[in-house]
Amino acid sequence: MELTPAEALAESARSRGLALQLDDGTRKSHSMAENTAFVTGFFKGISTRPAFAQLVASLYFVYEAMESAFDKATDPSVKALDYPELRRVPALEDDMAYYFGVDWQSTVRPTAATKEYCDRIRSIAVDEPPLLVAHMYTRYLGDLFGGQMMGGMARSSLNLDDALGTRFYEFDEIPRAKPFIEQWYARLNDLELDAGAKQRIVDEANLVFAFNIKLFDELQGGKRAVLRTMWGLAKGAVVSRVGKIFRRS
């Protein structure tokens, strides 16, 4: 029987359980993350290649911390949701080589905001592994939902070489994102967690959004720093030129 839209929504895993709790509980944080200056600028096509490269670098360090934690995890909640198709580190390694060269591992270091984010991942991996579910939810599902659009925008606005520099956004083993996400949500709802553990996962997801906002703000701050430097140089040049004029008169 074909479902009507209302019936389909009622049957969706997103309409119940921890899936619904996470979606509802992070709605405000999600909106704040989407409206950071870097993200809005990116979608307007005004992001710069250095800023995007720095974003790729930050994401590499975050995903390396996440997926290393998943590899070591024995917690059943983490193992249940750790789909190989979602893993991003190999794709990010390709992107890092594109932006920073083949020796990027010896030259690129995490920023302060990135390090804080990664430290949190490593901390909860030891102290409370089920909270890693919040990091899976916030990053992987966001990547799947918006990845193709983000990758396309980056290629067109930054004039990237064809099929290079945006491997992170390509999920080759997931041809249809929506059914996959629905399956992921269904498995999320099947986790055997008490009410307190579920709420802590929601709280952690909000913290993850805050970490991502810091990454974007740091990128935007870097652009402001460049502008301040350029303004300082321009101002100095004007003052110097005016001084020469007065000295000549």
Rank of each mutant, 00 (worst) to 15 (best):
E182K: 03
V239G: 02
R241F: 12
S156R: 15
E218Q: 15
Y185N: 06
V239E: 09
D190G: 08
E170T: 01
L81V: 05
V78W: 03
R176K: 07
E116T: 15
L59G: 01
R200I: 04
N35V: 06
A10V: 13
L55H: 05
E218F: 14
G221P: 01
A69I: 07
A19Q: 00
D94H: 01
A225V: 13
R16W: 09
I174R: 02
S106A: 06
E173V: 00
A125E: 04
L141C: 08
D203E: 14
P130A: 14
G17V: 09
F52C: 10
K115T: 07
W231E: 09
R247F: 14
T138G: 04
T111N: 04
I181T: 02
E2M: 05
G196Y: 13
A6K: 14
F38K: 03
S29K: 12
A37G: 05
S68T: 12
R224P: 02
V238E: 04
A134D: 05
V208N: 07
S123D: 02
A163D: 06
T111L: 13
P50M: 10
F61I: 06
A197L: 13
F211P: 02
A13T: 12
I46V: 14
R16A: 06
M149V: 15
D119Y: 08
D203H: 03
N159L: 14
T166Y: 12
E11H: 09
V56E: 01
D119K: 14
D95K: 08
L132C: 09
E192C: 06
L22S: 03
D172R: 15
A225D: 10
L233A: 10
A65Y: 05
A177L: 11
F246E: 11
V202T: 05
L144A: 04
T114K: 06
K178L: 14
G146S: 12
Y140W: 08
R200N: 07
D194G: 08
V133K: 05
P179A: 13
D194A: 10
R122I: 10
G101F: 00
Q105H: 07
L18A: 01
V102Q: 02
P50K: 11
A210G: 10
D127M: 06
A210C: 06
A237Y: 12
G243A: 15
V108Y: 02
L18C: 00
A97C: 03
A80D: 07
A51Y: 13
A154L: 12
L22A: 06
Y63N: 06
I121G: 01
S240D: 14
M150F: 12
K244Y: 11
